[in-house]
Design a protein around this nucleic acid. Structure first.
Length: 343
RNA sequence: UCCCCCAUAGCUCAGUCGGUAGAGCAGAUGGCUGUUAACCAUCGUGUCGGCGGUUCGAGUCCGUCUGGGGGAGCCA
């Protein structure tokens, strides 16, 4: 990218007018904030492709619609899928393309990735968007392999950002780049298991689900971030994690982790069930109908494979990069539920 | 989805005990000063977010819906 100078005069602050389409059109066109977003995004996408090319993890093309809910409803999740009507058929917009990535790994490749918009029906707020850009990858391997992959990926993203002329503008907005430099210098990120975090934080940072399972609160996550800066929260109790994560050998937790950084959970990763039978058990335990995931079970029955993967919310990562606190400021072309658009 | 708060002029907000609405800023017009502007004067009908109810009478009370903010949850 031939960026030699980003000499944007004036206020770098976000206009924060996404609720007003008329104002936002002007702001998105002219404000330095949105020009910075565009260039930072370009750097992140280029860096992502560069990173995976070195790892021989390949980009794959996938549809953004799915025929049945891919969002794991049931115990441990209330997430809302987005349903539309397409050619007269009820259809869901993908909330993640993890299962499709898992499919592609059966093509004899070591890893697959994509960056695409995915969709969520929850109300938007300072940390949630109804469409966000998802950077997901799935590899042949296990829990520790995907942790290393994510750490290397984030390191290479921050190195790429620091190597562009954008770094001065980022520094201006974020109030410095020590957070970027600090992450680059970490050989590995701190980890804390869910069980350890309960001892570390104390009961007041947890609530109980209707089934009596402890859930960490947002305040608890914030406390961990304040203490560690960047931290993996690992090995969640089986029933509060999605059904597709592989069980730990203790049978009580699953081989998954959330990366807490910036405003909270920014990466979710985990090792998947290897066999169809394990998937079937997971569905049963989470009280999710097996019929919705029949192909997924069949795939693992016929082509068992140990894989692991992760999903990164690009805008959430960008919040951390810019040290900002409202994710709705990060879309040049906003797509928020119940909010009109100018485009 | 749950809890709390909010919605009044272009903007920020006031409005007490229920008696048919006010201020500041912005704006418009005029005046004045040796003219990129300041100052002075004058100018306010706004479905009081929508619908329904109570009442002789509702911005005010009740119900409900919509939208916004905060918190919880869910998630990336």
């Amino acid at each position: 990218m031939a960026l030699t100078s980003l000499n944007w005069n004036g206020n770098m602050a976000p206009p924060s007018c996404w609720a007003s389409p008329e104002q936002h059109f002007e702001a998105a066109m002219a404000q330095p904030w949105y020009r910075l977003i565009t260039h930072v995004n370009a750097t992140l996408v280029n860096a992502t492709f560069d990173f995976y090319r070195q790892q021989e993890i390949i980009p794959v093309l996938m549809p953004i619609t799915v025929g049945s809910i891919s969002s794991p409803m049931g115990i441990g999740s209330d997430s809302l899928p987005v349903e539309i009507e397409l050619f007269g058929e009820p259809t869901f917009l993908a909330d993640s393309m993890q299962f499709q990535l898992e499919f592609f790994l059966r093509h004899g490749i070591e890893g697959a990735f994509y960056i695409m918009p995915t969709f969520r029906g929850e109300d938007s707020d300072v940390t949630h968007l109804n469409q966000f850009f998802h950077s997901e990858a799935e590899i042949v391997g296990g829990f520790d392999d995907v942790i290393v992959l994510v750490e290397n990926y984030l390191r290479s993203l921050t190195i790429a950002l620091c190597a562009t002329p954008l770094v001065d503008n980022i520094s201006q907005v974020a109030g410095g780049i020590t957070h970027l430099e600090c992450l680059q210098s970490m050989s590995e990120f701190p980890r804390i298991t869910f069980a350890e975090s309960m001892k570390f934080l104390g009961d007041e940072y947890f609530i109980r689900s209707p089934e009596g399972i402890p859930l960490i609160t947002r305040l608890g996550e914030k406390k961990l971030i304040d203490h560690f800066g960047v931290v993996w929260l690992t090995h969640f109790p089986r029933l509060i994690a999605p059904f597709y994560q592989a069980k730990s050998t203790n049978g009580l937790t699953v081989e998954c982790a959330d990366l807490l950084i910036g405003i909270g959970e920014t990466v979710g990763c985990g090792e998947r069930h290897t066999t169809g039978e394990d998937v079937r058990l997971g569905l049963e335990e989470h009280q999710v109908p097996v019929a919705d995931y029949e192909w997924y079970v069949q795939m693992k029955n016929k082509y068992p494979l140990r894989t692991a993967g992760f999903g990164l919310g690009l805008e959430r990562f960008l919040l951390w990069v810019l040290q900002h606190n409202d994710i709705r400021d990060l879309h040049v072309m906003p797509r928020l539920k119940n909010t009109r658009t100018w485009l």
